[in-house]
Every structure is written in C-alpha cells, then in structure tokens.
Simulated assay, not measured.
Amino acid sequence: MARYTGPKTRIARKFGEPIFGEDKVLAKKNYAPGQHGQNRRRKTSEYGTQLREKQKAKYTYGVLEKYFRNLFDKAARTKGITGEVLLQLLESRLDNVVFRLGIAPTRAAARQLVLHRHITVNGQVVNIASYHVKPGDVVGVRERSKSLEVIADALAGFNHSKYPWIEWDESSKSGKLLHVPAREDIPENIKEQLIVELYSK
C-alpha cells in the first residue's frame, strides 16, 4: 500500500508543528522551509486554509488522498458531527491505536510493526494498518515479538493513563479500546470543520 516517504522535517516546518513527533530541527527553525521561508507574509485564501488543514490531517495520520476521501464519505454517512466522526475513524485505525498504546514511538513505526505481523487483535495476528479497531477489541504484541528492543524502548516510561479511551495491561502487553474517543480527548491540533467545508464545496 502506498504511503508518504518524503522529507518529514520539511513537512513539519511547513505546518509549524511536530506532526511526525519530536523534531530537533523544528525547534531551531520554526518557520516555513525554503529560501523565503522566514519572509513569507502572503495572506492565505479561505480555500488555501482549508486545504492546508486537510493536508495536515493526512500527514499526521499517514494516509493518502483516496483513502482520506473515502473515510470522509463514510463519516458523512454516519450519524453525528462529520468532522468529529472523521477524526474518530482515523483514531480507530490499528496503526494509530498501536501508537496510542505506546507500543511504537511514531505512527510510521506502528504501521511497520503491524505490517511485519508483530501485532494481534483479540489474539489473532492482523497485518493491515487500516484495520478498524472496535470498542472492546484487545490490541496486543505477538508473544514472540514481546522481546523486541524497539517495543521495549517505546513502552519504557510511557504514560498509559493519558488516553482515557484505552486501557493498558502491562502483564500481557496489550491494551483494550474502551470506547470511541470524544473530540476533546483527541490531542491532535486539527480544525476538522475546515476539512468538512473543503469537501462540501
């Protein structure tokens, strides 16, 4: 499956936020990339602002346009506030849940763990990053993968209480999705209403 593999720091600087995780370069150069990055004063149009928000969401969750559009259409058909439902669907992706559980340091690393068959859902190995995790599902580390250094390093010192919609069991190295997260519990700085306005044109 296709995914973005280009320069991540450049994208983070474009949005002025560490959307791929902590970035030392972003801390030093918190302005847009390129020769005129520091001097850019041009006012962004309404369309430009909406497009920027959509791109930020896509890069944050590591998805491409076609998948994102299909997910938006699904959110629009679902009962509730479309923008909020869209973020909840993105949060329910298996690679994102693995990231939120602290099993991987980034979503990209979580995606790799899923694709390499290190992750189970309800005891069964699942290697589809976009798999939709439902409330009550238990996401864990495959038995023979529990000794992997990358997983041990990620879990060391991770605060599992910061996401109230998931419950972590240290003894089994698994977490349970208790319920779909409310919008106020999702920490991403995304203005989802702008995405709804963009797609509604």
Rank of each mutant, 00 (worst) to 15 (best):
Q55G: 01
K201C: 06
N39L: 15
K58T: 01
K173E: 12
R111P: 05
A12R: 07
I11Y: 01
H118E: 03
D137R: 03
R117L: 11
A12F: 05
E22I: 02
S92A: 14
G136T: 03
F158S: 10
T49I: 12
A156V: 07
K201M: 12
T9V: 02
A156N: 14
E17D: 08
T120A: 08
P181E: 06
E149C: 12
A2F: 13
H36W: 02
D23A: 07
E65T: 02
T49F: 07
E184C: 05
D153F: 12
R40N: 13
F99V: 03
E149D: 14
S200C: 11
K24F: 14
T60E: 04
T78L: 04
R13Y: 03
W168S: 03
V114G: 03
W168M: 09
K176F: 09
H116W: 02
N70G: 13
R10K: 14
N70S: 12
Y59I: 07
A104N: 03
G16F: 06
E65W: 03
G37K: 01
R93W: 04
A57W: 00
G83Q: 06
R100P: 00
E91R: 02
L26T: 08
P187W: 01
S92N: 06
A12I: 01
E167V: 10
R52S: 12
L101W: 00
K56T: 05
H179D: 09
G16D: 05
I81W: 10
A156Y: 11
P164V: 12
G37L: 09
F99M: 00
V97P: 04
S174D: 05
R144H: 11
G48M: 05
E84C: 09
D153I: 10
G83W: 04
L51S: 08
F68N: 04
T49H: 11
L155I: 12
L89I: 07
S145D: 01
G21R: 05
A152Q: 13
I81K: 15
E84I: 11
H160S: 12
V126I: 15
E17Y: 00
V196G: 06
L26S: 07
A129Q: 01
R100E: 00
G136Y: 08
Y199I: 09
R144K: 15
H118Y: 10
V125F: 07
V180T: 08
I128W: 02
P181R: 00
D23G: 03
V63S: 06
K28I: 10
D185E: 14
A2T: 15
A57S: 02
I81T: 12
K28E: 10
G136M: 08
F20H: 05
G62K: 04
I186E: 05
N159F: 07
L177V: 13
K54A: 00
V141W: 05
L155F: 11
K162P: 09
K56E: 01
